[in-house]
Design a protein around this nucleic acid. Structure first.
Lengths: 137, 137
DNA sequence: CTCATACCTTACGTTTACGTAAACGTCACC
DNA sequence: GGTGACGTTTACGTAAACGTAAGGTATGAG
């Protein structure tokens, strides 16, 4: 066990397991410049800070941002909190995304309504033929 | 003007313009079996019904469904009312889709919540520095 | 020495939904 | 009778986010 590089450090597969992703995914993020772990020879060594970055990356993904967007996003959190301009930028991006999502929300709701109607029509139709159409759950 | 094939009919580029898509897109949907216009020789001729189908396709897309899913979805609206077995199948598919959508709905709502929180944090951060960060609407 | 593990890099494969030529037919018009 | 607008088919290109070998390296165990 020669990997005594630091205290809160870990390997790529450990980090991957911790965040429920594959090592490949983490390397991919590195390729894209989202994360830059230290090295012990060739091997990647992840610090507490790296762990934080990965958490932010994955949250960005949950929010539906692209890798490129998340990169900007991360660079924002990088530069110590001074950059008011960049904060405003992020604020704008976030609001844009909110609008997109609200539209999506309306669409989904409308479709749910239509599907419900379709369902009741089918049920009625089946019922009319004496074939109880409960679906058999 | 030899295109007197019907009354409510139109060409591919007319339809494309009407729905803000390219002719290529419409041909692609045809390739995938989502739509099947009549032909005047080689040329495609779109009916009122075709127009309705395209509208449904595009709505499905806005909802983030794949083409394959939309195809099933469309077949749903096609049903000749006779086949009880098929009705039951469709009923099941419809219900499955509703579940998917409800999940999606929850995801979107959660994401919106997270974004809102992010926004308020940023606003607070900007506010704390005396830089009124209203976004300048 | 050999094996098994865990790591590495390079790089092609995958899926979805079209974009973008290429090469051709055909029609109305001047 | 050439020009341009519009149509056709066939087919390769593209972007996102990894998956998935292929092949090399380092290390501890037996």
């Amino acid at each position: 066990m020669l990997d005594e590089v630091g205290e809160g450090t870990c390997t790529i597969s450990e980090l991957a397991a911790e965040f429920q992703v594959t090592p490949r995914t983490i390397r991919f993020y590195e390729d894209q410049g989202l994360i830059a772990p230290a090295r012990d020879g060739l091997n990647r060594v992840y610090s507490h800070r790296d762990r934080g970055r990965l958490a932010l990356i994955l949250r960005g993904k949950r929010l539906g941002f692209t890798i490129a967007e998340i990169k900007d996003f991360l660079d924002l959190y990088d530069v110590d909190d001074q950059q008011v301009e960049q904060m405003r930028f992020l604020l704008r991006r976030g609001r844009e995304r909110q609008e997109q999502l609200r539209e999506q929300l309306r669409d989904v709701e409308q479709t749910l309504a239509e599907l419900a109607e379709l369902e009741s029509q089918i049920v009625a139709h089946l019922g009319a033929r004496g074939a109880a159409g409960g679906g058999g759950d």
